[in-house]
Write a protein that binds this DNA or RNA. Structure first.
Lengths: 335, 335
DNA sequence: AGCTAAAATGAAAGCACTTTCAGTTTAACA
DNA sequence: TGTTAAACTGAAAGTGCTTTCATTTTAGCT
């Protein structure tokens, strides 16, 4: 016999052959009910294992021990790695992890509006999403402990990296290796709804160093491509088919760098001799395929974010933190 | 002086000139209300400083609209892909996704015993974990809608694949290609705490076909290796260094197959000419690296699991289902 | 323009209790 | 014995919210 719902005062009343009023009264002002009746009702309560549900729930809801993560494409490798960091920190602290995947801005707005009001979360981590001042302030005002990753706002904690510096690192390294024809591949202008443009900054830094070195970055060497395999592959093909093709490609994500590698394999191009590749992120797979890349400590960012919310839940008076995580050049065999 | 009672949704509704329904809806299923209306209502909420009373909510709510997923290493690619399936089904149905990562059996036991009692979950999906009869029955008796993936129990819904058949598929294909020296790499005996042994079955099926074909599978061609890169790499090295090394390796997971590919690269072995590789799972990355593999529809399994719990939440009288998902041989370039 | 499906909305019916209020009993006292 | 106040009790009316269902609006097609 499954699904035996918790007993209500109705069940108790029926069992004790009294009205629900009496049951309620017994629970709230016991001295106002006759001792004999009291005994009757108590027996019924005991035998049914009754516990006023709503009240318990309400009490339980004061401190939910749950923290939420709002993230787009939460199954993309880089997001997963951040989540891993979050999860490990949370599970140590015995907090539940609730995931709110956002497919579009609608979703995000929905979550952002209702979460701080509903308060059925103790804290919130928002990954790679822009949130406007009004929402940030609401989060702040309602005391929802929040950490932003890959975006920042003065009213909230945040963890970011120096994207431009990432681009510079790649450019310097490639130039150091003697490359003259450098290309850039990335989701430079993602659908505006996410409203954050880290790749653009990476391109900026990349350009900057090239310029300093007197190397041109012609338009044909810059490819906008969404982070999907089919699209990236197509972009890489185009990139490698221009005349005087580049000798090195800086891909703004490891996944796209892997698309470059795939196309190179198809075209029987040797990596790194015919074409050098640098990725960005250092996802797990990068090591498997020996991809040279720029590591942004993904796990770490998640762990840190989780620790920050937990710390602020414990002590809400803690100062806000705006953290910039360092990047690291990881030399492997594709470059 | 005046009794400044806390604002209720009625106040908000009046202020925003909508019905209380809309206010409630905004808070619970935000994407079901028009963005313009949303703005109106949010303004009212903000200006009134409205906060819903937890106990009133609890009272009126019969379900939590949350379903939980218990899973080990939830950031391993194959698990992530199942989660993706779960998440997409859930978000369509407006359910929250709570993740319970299990690092050790302690954790699992904790979750399993408290979840059905707490009832702050409408349903539960348990991935790749063995649960004993006692727990299964408790879940069943407490009416917690549960689906197991990669394990089964007669009291609960389950989704499994035919692991042995997977092994057979690989063996047949490899034999068809003329290979005589076949090897097997996998986490055959994982730490007992998880207590499920799909890889063992894959090995069984693999062996079976070899035997029928009169091909031996000597011990030296069978490697136990945990699903970690360092360990797998070491195992592959050993495997390729025996005398008379195998010409083909069936790895029981794509991730391990990728380790094989990495070692082959290091040793300058050509794939598939010098060494053929077949993986298992067909994770996203398999396509990037052109890995021949056996697809077990991971996303699908997650989606299905989610749909099953949702269906049973709606109609608890639905019959239990024990589903066996088909496998599919995916031919790419490593074999 | 005409038609249909989907999206957005509100009225009203719950939910699991609490409270009010109008009875009943009971007990005490004249 | 009749009267009355205190002690009990239950029907019904809230409580603040959710959810169903019917209606309206909008968008997408021929």
């Amino acid at each position: 016999m499954p699904t035996q719902n918790k007993p209500t005062i109705y069940d108790v009343a029926k069992r004790a052959k009294v009205s629900i009023t009496t049951v309620s009264r017994l629970l709230n002002t016991p001295d106002k009910v006759n001792p004999e009746t009291r005994k009757l009702v108590m027996d019924a309560i005991d035998s049914l294992g009754f516990t006023p549900k709503a009240e318990a729930r309400a009490r339980a809801m004061r401190n939910t021990n749950r923290i939420g993560v709002i993230t787009p494409f939460f199954t993309a490798p880089s997001f997963v790695q951040r989540l891993r960091g979050v999860a490990s920190a949370l599970s140590k602290a015995n907090y539940e992890l609730v995931i709110y995947p956002v497919d579009d801005m609608e979703h995000l707005q929905g979550y952002i509006s209702s979460i701080p009001v509903m308060k059925n979360l103790d804290g919130l981590i928002i990954i790679s999403l822009a949130i406007d001042s009004k929402d940030a302030n609401r989060l702040y005002e309602n005391g929802m402990q929040t950490v932003l990753i890959e975006y920042s706002h003065s009213a909230l904690n945040s963890i970011v990296i120096d994207d431009a510096e990432g681009g510079r690192l790649a450019a310097r390294y490639l130039i150091g290796k003697g490359h003259k024809r450098l290309a850039f591949l990335g989701d430079i202008e993602p659908p505006e709804r996410y409203a954050i443009y880290p790749v653009k900054s990476r391109l900026h830094g990349f350009k900057e160093v090239l310029k300093e070195a007197g190397i041109e970055l012609p338009k044909k060497y810059i490819r906008q491509a969404e982070n999907r395999q089919d699209i990236s592959i197509k972009a890489v093909h185009e990139l490698l088919n221009v005349d005087n093709p580049p000798t090195a490609i800086f891909a703004a994500s490891d996944v796209q760098a892997m698309s470059v590698m795939k196309v190179a394999r198809q075209l029987k191009l040797k990596i790194p001799d015919d074409i050098a590749v640098i990725g960005f992120d250092d996802i797990d797979m990068a090591e498997y395929v020996d991809l040279t890349t720029i590591r942004q400590h993904l796990d770490e960012s998640g762990r840190l974010a989780a620790e920050m919310v937990l710390a602020r839940i414990k002590d809400p008076k803690r100062a806000l933190q705006q953290i910039k995580l360092p990047l690291e050049f990881v030399e492997r065999s594709t470059c």
